[in-house]
Computed example of a mutant assay.
Amino acid sequence: MSTEGRTAEATPAPLESAGFVRLVSSADGDALAATGLLARAIREHGTPFQVTVGRTVAERTERATIGEPEADDATIVVGSVDADLEATRLAATDRAATLEAAELVRELGESPDPVLALAGLVAAGSEPGAGESEWVLETARDRGLVDRRAGVAVPTADPVDGLAHSTRVRAPWSGDPDAVRDAFSGLELPEPDALGTDDHRAIGSLVALDAVGAEDTVEASARSIGRALKPYATPEGPFATVGGYADVLAATARTEPGTGVALAMGHGVDRAALEAWRTHGRRAHAALDSASVSRHDGLFVLGIEDGPVETVAEIAVAYRSPEPTVLVVGDGEAALATRTDESLGSTVEAIARALEGDVDGLEYDDGRRRGYLRYDPETDDSTIIATTREFR
């Protein structure tokens, strides 16, 4: 079960001479963006390639080793895999995979799509242009691809549609377009294509007030909603804002990875991706609405019957959890999310190791601030919760 949690040395030489490239991605927005950047560059080189998405470490390891590779084949894995796998690895536990992929693309002599790269950075929890990603934002600005404005980061021009299904925002009306429309009724907004700066500013103010003023909100919600405000608009991009693009990448990675891969590669599946994102958002907010709750020292536990466990955990830790780490337990799967700077990679692996002898069908995945477990649905929730508490 051992995995490599640090990024392996990634040099372009194998890719330049490869006869075939296999790309294997984690099921998250950052990894999907990184994979899309790499796939586009490999396509420009005219090299045949294949892209697959693996939800767990075991799945990615299997997909990276299946078949009999030729001597000049190359494999790139975005995410953790078994430690002895021979491949270029962008592990994304200490640094956004998107940033590593963008740098690798430049070393190959290609220009990474800066809007996709920015979306991947947001999906990884990074601020666009912060630190070593400054060049990505400056490239997008210089080319007129982004423009910061007032409002909220959603993928659609229609703010009602965008906010109802966004998983980057949690307010009393989340998941319900009619409730969002009622909340906006006093703003007297024009049609979506006629929204001006003052309209976007009014929307942003209302959303911020509703997000921090909800009955079950926590202090962290002020920081969380702040990251969703004043978005980078993308006039020529597939979606209205960088943050909205990130939300769609995350949704498709977890629910329709084939659509997500096509989106990241620029294959014009925007409409299908938006439909997947809407369904994903509705399910996530509905699951959070009906979740059972228990609080422990350092850990907030939610039980859900149906819904994307990782997304529910991320929304909860951002807006609803009084503890720094959230565990969401569903039907045969569970997810961890944290708002601390501590990587959950070693924690999730330790939990998996502790459960291995007692839980059938156990697989796991790790990330910078998230973790995922999949197991036999007959497993008692208390087993997962008790073991997780030992490590949190």
Rank of each mutant, 00 (worst) to 15 (best):
S2Q: 14
E4C: 07
R6K: 14
T7H: 06
T7G: 12
E9H: 07
P14F: 09
S17M: 04
G19E: 15
F20M: 05
V21W: 08
V24R: 07
S26C: 13
A31H: 11
A34Y: 00
T35F: 10
G46E: 07
A58Q: 13
E59D: 15
E59L: 10
R63G: 02
A64P: 04
A64F: 10
E68F: 08
A74K: 11
S80E: 15
S80A: 15
D82Y: 09
A83E: 15
A83W: 07
D84M: 06
L85Y: 03
L85A: 09
E86Q: 14
T88D: 00
D94G: 12
T98K: 02
T98H: 03
L99G: 01
L99M: 03
A102S: 09
L104N: 00
R106C: 07
E107N: 10
G109T: 03
E110C: 11
V115Y: 01
A117N: 14
A117D: 02
G120M: 02
S126A: 15
V136R: 00
R143G: 03
V152A: 05
V152K: 05
P155I: 05
T156Y: 07
V160T: 14
H165F: 15
H165A: 12
S166Y: 09
T167D: 10
T167L: 09
R168H: 11
R170W: 14
R170G: 02
S174G: 04
D176R: 15
D178F: 10
A179I: 04
V180I: 06
F184Y: 14
L187M: 04
P190V: 12
P190Y: 02
P190G: 05
P192A: 00
P192W: 00
D193P: 05
R201G: 01
G204K: 01
A211D: 07
E215F: 11
S221Q: 05
A222R: 13
S224M: 07
I225Y: 08
R227T: 15
Y232W: 15
P235R: 00
E236D: 10
P238T: 03
A251G: 11
A251H: 11
T252L: 01
V261N: 08
M265N: 05
H267N: 11
G268Q: 01
D270P: 03
R271G: 10
E275L: 10
E275Q: 08
A276Y: 10
R278H: 13
R283D: 12
A284L: 13
A284V: 13
H285R: 13
A286F: 10
L288M: 11
A291G: 13
D297P: 07
I304R: 09
G307P: 00
V312S: 12
V317P: 00
V317K: 00
A318Y: 02
A318Q: 05
P322L: 04
L327A: 04
V329P: 03
V329N: 04
A334Q: 12
L336T: 06
L336N: 02
T340E: 12
D341A: 14
T347F: 03
E349Q: 14
E349I: 05
I351M: 05
A352G: 09
A352F: 08
R353D: 14
G357F: 03
V359K: 11
V359F: 06
D360T: 13
D360W: 06
L362N: 04
G367C: 01
Y372P: 03
R374E: 11
E378R: 15
S382W: 08
T383M: 04
I385N: 01
T387W: 01
T388Q: 01
F391A: 06
F391Y: 13
